[in-house]
Write a protein that binds this DNA or RNA. Structure first.
Lengths: 336, 336
DNA sequence: CTGAAAGCGCTTACAG
DNA sequence: CTGAAAGCGCTTACAG
């Protein structure tokens, strides 16, 4: 038989309500009564029932995090930062990999009365309409990677990819590079990634002679794994245009790209410089180690939770723009 | 105002119970009545409340998966396989990173009435006693990586590391290697990892002249990231003993080890062969690509779910031993 | 084939 | 300072 509050109450010789007050620290209960209650709890090995609590409190203390790709260490680190901060406030977090249609997840969040979610999936996977529906049903949302959402209605946290791309391009420019390629993890039609936008802008600003000839788009809608980096680098080489540096949408792609370039006898960085985005740990062990625009992933996840928490507690719709930092390593060098 | 079953019932002109029967497909309801109910559901945009359902059904349809290190792609893939299979049976899965003390999580599982968990964390993080307590409280468990647990009481799934290590050693032996090092991700005191046991056994069986001189233990209790591989390889070199091949506890460690070896001017595989365990995708893009003992991660995760499901549905305590497969790539070669 | 009603285990205003 | 009781939104035997 399951031990309930009633059992505890009986054993402690008090009422149901008193047990609640003691356990939740609400109400003022005589210390001596409280002691009896705690004693009964221990003796019976009583575990409160959160389901029943959720029922009456109308909050579940559960949060969801929808992440595009848990197998990418980049997201893994963010998730850790988020979860750690959430646990400190007694939230339990559900991680959803987004393999299935997100619509199903969204319905699940409503049906399970999840208090809030952190949504890092790409916008093409869901409609903003669905997002608002979620909010209407009482699920708080913090979004990342969706430039089209109205940030006055939905809290959001973004990497400042525009600025980061500018820094990356200026860095390579400073090393003498004028033929800089960009391997885009997104399909052609997806113009909502600011790295893409930033790249095109910087090609103009720096008046690069290559123009857009070195821009390789990926699979629609989105694929940024090692494999894609490898394949896009192959495509770039097949084009036959001159290039001396390659920027990739993320580090994983950069790993794949390096592999392809090396297989073709190109030395890094002597013949071609390569850089990525994200700053995952692995980059420093790659051969050669990877220059990258790094995000402080732990802080990012923590900040995401804080925005969500603020949204739950006092309806605050926050917005946070995260700055990336250049980490210079061995995969980039002076243009010869 | 929240829309409930009562609202639907009223609108459809039926009772509360009838709505339940229709939505759950239980009971025999006239088709024409059912239609009215579904119509009302649509019109009101009604979402059933799982919390209330859990309350009366005494099942939450939530599963937990406790994974040592979500940032390692190896676990990420397993998680995906598990989650995918679970979703097909309408389960929702919570992924727990195990950053905090697992005891807290365990209490959480009870308190939240999680139907079952897949526990892949290392045994030193929890006591078997705690595990049994979980089961007593109605939480089903499938465990992995705990050789000490009684597999007649707790369902489990294990990689056949003993056999895999034998295959790995015989493979290297066949290439002519007689001085084979093992970089162990676990601390000295942890003898419950079968790779470690298998290594020592094979050193004996093959009568390797190196004996145990090339066995490097890791940090207590457990650390198998790139960094550890790097550091242990350094230690190995400092020892000054002759070695021509290196086996690592997992692929991530192998990456770090390769880096350290290369930094010391050793060529892979010309001067030293390196292999890992796991078979993560990244291995094929490394430079040189990594020879490894691979697990079918998706299948592993799926199987884990099936064991858990069987345990929930009909109290079956299953056991499954997973076979690894040698993937030969460029990081290993004939001993010169 | 359908409805009235008890029950799941908590919380919390309201009395006292 | 403590208790009796209503309520949270479902499910499901039991009647009819």
């Amino acid at each position: 038989m399951k031990i309930t509050r009633n059992d505890v109450a009986k054993r402690a010789g008090v009422s149901n309500a008193t047990v609640s007050y003691v356990l939740n620290g609400s109400g003022k209960i005589k210390e001596e009564t409280a002691k009896r209650v705690w004693k009964a709890v221990k003796e019976l090995d009583y575990h409160p029932d959160m389901i029943a609590r959720s029922m009456s409190k109308n909050e579940t203390m559960q949060l969801g995090i929808v992440s595009e790709d848990v197998a990418n260490p980049f997201f893994g680190e963010i998730v850790k930062g988020f979860e750690s901060a959430a646990n400190n406030q007694n939230y339990f977090v559900n991680i959803c990999t987004g393999i299935h249609k997100l619509d199903e997840y969204f319905d699940n969040f409503i049906t399970r009365r999840i208090d809030g979610i952190f949504l890092t999936a790409l916008p093409h996977k869901y409609s903003n309409e669905k997002l608002f529906k979620l909010v209407e049903h009482g699920v708080r949302v913090v979004v990342s990677g969706n430039v089209n959402v109205d940030y006055r209605r939905i809290a959001s946290i973004e990497n400042d990819h525009l600025e980061a791309m500018r820094d990356a391009m200026e860095y390579l420019f400073g090393l003498g590079h004028r033929h800089i390629a960009y391997l885009n993890g997104l399909g052609k039609e997806m113009s909502n990634d600011l790295r893409y936008v930033g790249y095109k802008k910087m090609v103009e600003n720096l008046e690069l002679p290559c123009g857009y000839d070195l821009l390789i788009n990926g699979k629609y809608p989105y694929a940024t794994g090692v494999t894609e980096g490898y394949e896009e680098a192959k495509k770039l080489m097949q084009l036959g245009n001159k290039f001396t540096a390659v920027i990739c949408t993320n580090d994983m792609m950069a790993f794949g790209a390096m592999k392809a370039l090396q297989e073709n006898g190109l030395r890094i960085p002597q013949d071609v410089s390569v850089m990525g985005f994200d700053g995952i740990d692995l980059g420093q062990y790659w051969h050669p180690s990877l220059t990258t625009m790094a995000t402080d992933k732990n802080a990012f996840g923590k900040k995401a939770f804080e925005l969500l928490y603020a949204s739950i507690k006092d309806e605050t719709i926050g917005y946070y723009k995260n700055k990336l930092k250049l980490i210079e390593r061995d995969s980039t060098g002076i243009c010869r």
